[in-house]
Computed example of a mutant assay.
Amino acid sequence: MEALYHQTNRLVQGTQQCFEKLEKADDINSDAIEREIQARINSITSNCERLEILLYKEPLNRRTNGKLRIDQLKYDRVHLQAALDTFRNRKYQRLQEEREREALLNLQFQPNNCKETSILMDHSQKHHSSLQNANRGVDDLLLSGAGILENLRDQRMTMKGAHRRLYDIANTLGLSNTTMRLIERRAYQDQFILFGGMVFTLIVIGLIVVYCT
């Protein structure tokens, strides 16, 4: 176990030195160094797994110290892998920016094509006109509905006045209680008809407003 631990520790140190070479290398040579670093990291991972198996064969008084050393190697491996991934991401972004810059420099501009640059103003104008007409129609419906409600309110007041006058006339003429109850029942039913018409009108106006907008 000790020999494998020292071998893995040397791998960690050698991988760290490879990163110094990687920072100084150009794009052509960096690929080979990246592959070498990845191979070293894979070896470190494999050795850590073997060390964890061998740890259980050690005496109990040495397992705690051995576990700490293996955890340190695993931490170093994670750190090395993260550093390699970060370098690859930076390299990819740099290459992508260079390709985009090269493509922009090589781009040849041509005179504008009237068919390609023309804007479909007619369609936009028609759409705008349709919206204006719809809004105008909704406003007209709202005004019409308000007029209908006002008429219904006036009719209700008229019916109340007529009922009151009929009641007074009936008292004056001395009509029977049965006749009075019939008149009151008819007036009560007329109120339901009135309120029902008002509610129906409001529902129709609300549906028109919802579907038109």
Rank of each mutant, 00 (worst) to 15 (best):
H79F: 02
L54E: 13
T86V: 03
Y56S: 12
L51I: 06
N65G: 09
N29G: 11
L22R: 03
Y92N: 07
D85C: 03
D71N: 15
S46Y: 10
Q96V: 04
A32P: 01
K67E: 09
R50F: 10
Q96A: 14
C48E: 08
R40K: 14
R88H: 07
N89G: 02
K24F: 00
E23F: 06
I53E: 15
R88V: 13
R99A: 11
Q16D: 01
E36H: 13
Q72V: 05
R77W: 03
R40M: 14
K91G: 02
E98D: 12
I53T: 15
Y92V: 02
I37Y: 08
Y56R: 07
A32H: 06
K21W: 02
K24G: 00
Q38I: 02
I70R: 10
L51S: 05
Q38P: 01
Y56N: 11
N89S: 10
S43K: 14
F87H: 12
K67F: 08
I28P: 00
L54K: 11
Q72Y: 06
R90N: 10
Q72W: 03
R99Q: 14
N61G: 00
T45G: 14
A39N: 15
R99T: 10
R62E: 06
L95A: 10
Q72P: 00
C18Y: 06
K91H: 04
E20H: 03
E49A: 12
L80D: 03
Q93M: 14
D31I: 12
T45R: 14
E58L: 12
F87A: 04
F87K: 05
R69D: 10
E100D: 12
C18N: 12
L22F: 00
A82T: 10
N42A: 15
E36N: 15
L60A: 12
E52C: 12
L73W: 11
K57V: 03
R62A: 05
N42F: 06
I53W: 05
I41S: 07
L73D: 08
E34T: 13
E23C: 01
R62D: 08
K67C: 02
S46A: 15
E36Y: 07
K24W: 02
L68G: 03
Q72A: 11
T45Q: 13
R99H: 11
T64C: 04
N65K: 10
T64W: 09
P59V: 07
L84Q: 02
E98G: 02
I70V: 15
R62S: 04
I70K: 12
